[in-house]
Computed example of a mutant assay.
Amino acid sequence: MTKPRLLVLSASIGAGHVKAGESLCEAYEESFNGEARHVDFLRYASPIFSHWIEEAYYIMTKHTPSVYKLLYQMADNRFSPAKKSEVLIGLSKYRDLVREFRPHAIISTHFFPAAIVSFMYPHFSVPNGVVLTDYVSHHIWVNPNTQLFFVAHEGMVDELKQLGVDEEKIRVTGIPIRPVFDQEFNRQEMQKKLGLDPNKLTLLVMSGGNAIGPLAEILKALEQFKENFQIFVITGHNQKSFIQLTELFQELNIKGQVLGYVDNVHEYMVAADLLISKAGGLTVTEAITIGLPMAIIQPTPGQEDGNTTFLTKAGSGTYLKSIKELENFISELLANPSMIEQMRQNALKLSKHNATHSILTEIDKLIAEKRR
């Protein structure tokens, strides 16, 4: 019998969807003895349209977040025109891809390809599932011919049921992240490896691959506490932010380092006491898996609002509406160090280890049933 072939479809609107897809493919080939292919389907279907959508997303989330939130809310119904446009854009490309790769199963980590897979199911009855990459459900993920819905936590089961999804289709697995995050680490050893002072508060600031966020304002606000903390700032692929923040570090004489894109971000997360960041689904998942408390600033309206609410209700994160609130929170942490440990324990209670393996196990069951 030939190796099972898994097709994973994502879209590069936000880095999390692609990262989740890559993790699934890597694990499927390493642990399930299958052949996997990951396709950024939006770029595959229409590079020009993909570029336009990606640019529009970053412009709206940075400059007009209220507009993005309105569009997000308008799309949260079963008659949303967004689904119709998704299907029309990708039909012919999807047909070509399925005929060429002949997958035994398909997983979508973005709602754009998920809608197409469902629409084309009567013509290509390939077992399929979707991975919701946030901590809140939304109608745009719900399609009639999706066979399995993989969600981050138990509360999303009722949310999806209210959107018309049969409970038997829902699996609470967690969100797939790189296997390295599921390993056990020693914080003290990691801090030593990174040259950190174990007696000082260690802060990690991230704003995603495009460095959206008030990084300079955060550093200026934290200057008053610089004798009490050490800090890493990760700017991702944004070279302009990297240069500007490096200069600001030198000006403020802050102990720490500005980093660009790193492939060992888990090491910095293990060593840190607090992550100051937006609330992307993959970032949240990585943080709670490691047990890293979060201070959330400027979450993207819509899905990140839901992620923020999830963390704050569980006591593993706090939502800071302004730079002044950040100053107050850091001051409180320095006065009450036990707060960090409590938030850390709350985060660990939320974690769902080996989500990638759990998802692929369920998909393998679908493949086995189809092959009988």
Rank of each mutant, 00 (worst) to 15 (best):
Q73H: 05
Q73W: 00
M74A: 05
D76H: 07
R78C: 10
R78Q: 14
R78S: 14
F79Q: 13
S80R: 05
A82M: 09
A82G: 00
K83S: 02
K84H: 07
K84N: 09
S85A: 13
E86P: 00
L88P: 02
I89D: 04
I89S: 08
S92P: 01
K93M: 11
K93S: 14
R95G: 09
R95D: 14
L97Y: 08
L97N: 07
V98M: 10
F101N: 01
R102N: 12
H104P: 02
H104F: 00
H104M: 04
I106G: 11
I106V: 15
T109H: 06
F111L: 06
A114E: 04
A115N: 14
Y121Q: 04
P122M: 12
V130D: 04
V131Y: 02
L132M: 10
Y135Q: 04
V136S: 09
V136G: 07
V136P: 01
S137E: 05
S137Q: 02
S137W: 00
W141V: 03
N143R: 04
N145Q: 07
N145S: 04
T146G: 06
Q147C: 05
L148D: 08
A152S: 14
H153Y: 10
E154Y: 04
G155W: 03
V157G: 01
D158W: 01
E159F: 02
L160F: 10
Q162C: 05
L163W: 01
G164S: 10
E167G: 12
E168S: 15
K169V: 05
I170W: 03
R171G: 01
P179L: 13
V180H: 02
F181V: 09
F181T: 03
F181E: 08
D182F: 13
Q183N: 15
Q183M: 15
F185I: 04
N186S: 15
R187A: 05
Q188Y: 10
Q188I: 14
E189S: 13
K192M: 12
K192Q: 15
K192N: 14
K193I: 10
L203E: 03
V205I: 13
V205M: 07
M206G: 07
S207I: 05
